[in-house]
Design a binder for these strands. Structure first.
Lengths: 210, 210
DNA sequence: CTAACGTTTGTCCATCCGGTCAAAATTTGC
DNA sequence: GCAAATTTTGACCGGATGGACAAACGTTAG
């Protein structure tokens, strides 16, 4: 009655929970919450299903823990967007960092996309609370830059959305990007091209000079 | 043996199949393929499960039919991208049309996103064939504009990707956009703001003039 | 050494879900 | 009006899946 779930005390618990979360990230991101089975996760984690359920009592608990951890790393680049540097440089760096995250953590991106696509049933409070708060802050910073004439006047919220959309596209829609570009290009050159393109798009737009 | 599936002859068949597809679009787009159940679709279509299975023998058949129909309408705006008009105007129109589709057909967008996110297991051939072919064509058109000095020189493929990403974001990540923007704005003003922002982004970029 | 505690496993259960089937109800062609 | 064809339904099946449980196994502290 006193220990409804085993507390994270022992070293083993901490390690096993990490193994499970890593396995769950793989399985959830590839199949969605509903599409993933506990058996799959258990196998990927190298343990039996009852053993896994000893560390996480319900499938949803795994998912919830995963989403909480995810959001922190996921929003780190936006948190780092700061008032100190030159605005255009700051934005450029933000775009590059987001694109690197799409390249290096595509599973996290897809897990998140899956959750949002289904209507965010499990993380809606986080979106309306933590996420909205952060975006409001950063939108204010960007607005300051606009008022100082450092960047063109436009909607800072939609600017953030467009950076999210374009960068995460390379993780979430990876198979489509690959299919369209064909087998010729390497992963690296694909991301280099994307980085170069996005930098040009956000800084210069499409209109030719003069 | 001769009629493996009922042929689409009678009026009833045609009508019922349409009702089922409409219901399936609703359910699939909200829950994904795996997350959707035949019972849910049958209920949304106002008929019993065996009755539904009389028109589509397998769950996958419904999904496949849906995806085939979808892709046509979905790619129509890109097909309409033409060499005749002024390049910047053409691109502006394309962006606007895509954004309108995200507003008017969000379920279709989410259905498609769901499929791609899962690795496009059911439509990979379409991506590598029809879709790639179309994008190759249009990328060539855009490249022509670049060579004629009508728009800045950049990667036409990533340009198309970025238009897809930014516009579909408003359908696929709708709940997140709403959560961040808060309850203040109406649907209409949200899309107007987005349209205005995207037009400015793609045409002018962020750098201030002069 | 041993008792207490933490970990692992095999077995089992209830429910859900995709799909079948035969019989009943309805529509259609003549 | 009636026979053939089409449509609809209730009952059912087998496999998958989330989760419970108790017994066995291992570890640790005294």
């Amino acid at each position: 009655m006193d220990t409804p779930a085993p507390r994270r005390r022992t070293r083993i618990q901490q390690e096993k929970r990490d193994v499970i979360l890593e396995a769950a990230l793989e399985v959830f991101s590839a199949n969605g919450f509903r599409g993933a089975t506990i058996d799959q996760i258990a196998e990927a984690a190298g343990m039996s299903k009852p053993n896994l359920l000893y560390y996480f009592r319900r499938k949803e608990d795994i998912h919830e823990t995963l989403m909480q951890r995810l959001l922190d790393t996921w929003l780190a680049p936006l948190r780092a967007l700061d008032d100190v540097g030159e605005p255009l440089t700051e934005l450029k760096r933000y775009i590059r960092r987001k694109l690197e995250m799409a390249r290096d953590f595509p599973r996290e991106s897809r897990l998140f996309a899956n959750e949002i696509l289904q209507g965010a049933p499990r993380i809606m409070p986080l979106l309306e609370g933590e996420l909205k708060g952060l975006v409001d802050d950063k939108a204010a910073v960007i607005k300051g830059w606009m008022q100082a004439g450092k960047i063109i006047r436009t909607d800072p919220y939609h600017l953030i959305f467009s950076i999210w959309a374009t960068t995460q596209h390379y993780a979430d829609f990876d198979v489509q990007v690959r299919a369209v570009l064909g087998p010729g290009r390497s992963d690296e050159s694909r991301f280099e091209d994307a980085a170069r393109f996005l930098e040009g798009l956000f800084l210069e737009g499409l209109k030719p000079k003069g």
